[in-house]
Amino acid sequence: MNSKSLGLIVLRERKAQKLRQAELAAAAGVGIRFIVDLEAGKPTLQLEKVLHVLATLGCDVTIVPPAGDI
């Protein structure tokens, strides 16, 4: 996973839900520019906002630690 692949997931899910960038931005409480940058894979976006956009789309985020870590 990297910022480009995450952006592609957001783009595809937004389109699957038939949302415009402005609609997603309004629903998530972020600016349109943030959605544009997120979908483009900008690597320096604020994590909390990214997570909020993902939650708005209904996406789950799972982090799996390396084997042997607790």
Results as ranks from 00 to 15, higher is better:
residue 1 M to N: 09
residue 1 M to D: 05
residue 1 M to F: 05
residue 1 M to H: 07
residue 2 N to M: 07
residue 3 S to R: 03
residue 3 S to T: 09
residue 3 S to Q: 10
residue 4 K to G: 10
residue 5 S to E: 12
residue 5 S to T: 10
residue 7 G to A: 05
residue 7 G to T: 02
residue 7 G to S: 04
residue 7 G to K: 04
residue 7 G to W: 00
residue 8 L to Q: 00
residue 8 L to R: 02
residue 8 L to M: 02
residue 9 I to H: 04
residue 9 I to Y: 01
residue 9 I to P: 01
residue 10 V to Q: 06
residue 10 V to M: 08
residue 11 L to P: 12
residue 11 L to M: 15
residue 12 R to M: 07
residue 12 R to H: 06
residue 12 R to L: 08
residue 12 R to K: 12
residue 13 E to R: 15
residue 13 E to F: 14
residue 14 R to E: 03
residue 14 R to L: 09
residue 14 R to T: 06
residue 15 K to I: 06
residue 15 K to E: 08
residue 15 K to F: 02
residue 15 K to G: 03
residue 16 A to K: 01
residue 17 Q to D: 11
residue 17 Q to A: 08
residue 17 Q to N: 11
residue 18 K to E: 13
residue 19 L to N: 09
residue 19 L to F: 11
residue 19 L to G: 10
residue 19 L to Y: 07
residue 20 R to S: 15
residue 22 A to C: 02
residue 22 A to Q: 04
residue 22 A to M: 00
residue 22 A to F: 00
residue 23 E to P: 11
residue 23 E to M: 12
residue 23 E to I: 10
residue 25 A to H: 05
residue 26 A to Y: 12
residue 26 A to G: 13
residue 28 A to Q: 02
residue 28 A to P: 02
residue 29 G to P: 13
residue 29 G to V: 14
residue 29 G to F: 14
residue 29 G to C: 12
residue 31 G to T: 14
residue 31 G to F: 08
residue 32 I to P: 03
residue 32 I to V: 08
residue 32 I to A: 05
residue 33 R to H: 11
residue 33 R to W: 09
residue 34 F to L: 07
residue 34 F to R: 08
residue 34 F to H: 09
residue 34 F to C: 06
residue 35 I to P: 01
residue 35 I to Q: 01
residue 36 V to P: 09
residue 37 D to W: 07
residue 37 D to K: 06
residue 37 D to R: 10
residue 38 L to T: 06
residue 38 L to C: 07
residue 38 L to V: 05
residue 38 L to M: 10
residue 38 L to R: 08
residue 39 E to P: 10
residue 39 E to N: 11
residue 39 E to Q: 13
residue 39 E to F: 12
residue 39 E to M: 12
residue 40 A to K: 05
residue 40 A to M: 00
residue 40 A to W: 01
residue 40 A to S: 03
residue 42 K to N: 13
residue 42 K to S: 11
residue 42 K to E: 14
residue 43 P to C: 10
residue 44 T to R: 14
residue 44 T to P: 09
residue 45 L to S: 00
residue 46 Q to E: 15
residue 47 L to R: 10
residue 47 L to N: 13
residue 48 E to C: 15
residue 49 K to P: 02
residue 50 V to Q: 00
residue 50 V to S: 03
residue 50 V to G: 01
residue 51 L to Q: 15
residue 51 L to D: 15
residue 51 L to I: 15
residue 51 L to G: 15
residue 51 L to E: 15
residue 53 V to P: 01
residue 53 V to C: 04
residue 54 L to K: 07
residue 54 L to H: 08
residue 54 L to D: 06
residue 55 A to V: 08
residue 55 A to P: 08
residue 55 A to R: 13
residue 55 A to Q: 12
residue 55 A to I: 06
residue 56 T to V: 13
residue 57 L to A: 00
residue 57 L to V: 04
residue 57 L to Q: 03
residue 58 G to S: 10
residue 58 G to T: 08
residue 58 G to C: 09
residue 58 G to N: 10
residue 58 G to W: 10
residue 59 C to K: 11
residue 60 D to H: 12
residue 61 V to G: 07
residue 61 V to E: 07
residue 62 T to M: 10
residue 62 T to V: 14
residue 63 I to F: 13
residue 64 V to G: 00
residue 65 P to R: 04
residue 65 P to H: 04
residue 66 P to V: 14
residue 67 A to G: 00
residue 67 A to N: 01
residue 67 A to L: 03
residue 67 A to I: 03
residue 68 G to T: 00
residue 69 D to L: 07
residue 69 D to H: 05
residue 70 I to R: 09
residue 70 I to K: 11
